[in-house]
Nucleic acid binder design. Structure first.
Lengths: 122, 122
DNA sequence: TCTGGTACTTCCCAATTGGAAACTACTTTC
DNA sequence: GAAAGTAGTTTCCAATTGGGAAGTACCAGA
């Protein structure tokens, strides 16, 4: 009869749990994955481009989310020397390392949707 | 000069974005991954076991999160016929399909931590 | 009968998140 | 000079999230 934690007391689990918290604190929120996914797909987009691509987002959120992603080195921001000043947002090399993770989530989400709305013989 | 969305207008992107939203709506929150991870690691835990394993969680949150996970068929709840009534929480077969995703997040989180606190020659 | 263990629920509150609308600021075009 | 396009910021508000503490209910053992 155990009265104290056992499973998660191991070093390996502690590290894993911490890692998941780290990752999710960077990637949580309604828009992060949408923005990252869009930037992975189409490189170098302006603020207004993103506003049009990421359906439903407003200027405040987009601005804030891009800042978050920038300080975490997932997205880079470059002010261009154009007549009406434009800004180029691109995914960084480091941001690209999220591709397998995003793919895995998308894959699971697609399967989930199938299992809910899909065939009834399950 | 494009004025309308182009990248995310494709059917493939729409489906992917929807899938990511689906998945995250089930898995977001402070505790979901911790609970799932613990249940994947150690099968069949009681409410109080989980309360001890998932460091920091309170009864209210644990109860609510377990209900969420149960309705989405990721965790199963079984009331045991014991003297002081006990409940067994187990991960479902479907819940186990989250393993690769959880592994991927943990892996990325560990690498992220290394890139922040790790070697400076990067 | 009182303490302790199981498994919760309820209530109240604070912090965070997210959104709409308006506003800034600068430039080019009509 | 007004309109439109660039890239945001600010303000105000509502909804969601999360936590602490206490309460409920049932049973067993000292």
């Amino acid at each position: 009869m155990k009265k104290t934690a056992e499973i998660n007391a191991t070093q390996v689990c502690q590290v894993r749990m911490q890692a998941i918290s780290d990752a999710m604190s960077l990637l949580s929120g309604k828009w992060k994955f949408h923005i990252l996914g869009t930037l992975i797909e189409g490189n170098a987009l302006g603020f207004m481009d993103l506003l049009r691509e990421v359906k439903g987002i407003g200027t405040k959120m987009l601005s804030k989310e891009l800042q978050d992603l920038e300080v975490n080195n997932l997205v880079s921001r470059k002010v261009m020397n154009t007549k009406p000043i434009t800004v180029e947002y691109t995914i960084t090399e480091y941001g690209k390392t999220l591709s397998p993770l995003i793919d895995e989530i998308a894959k699971w989400g697609i399967d989930y949707r199938k299992s809910v709305y899909g065939k009834t013989d399950k």
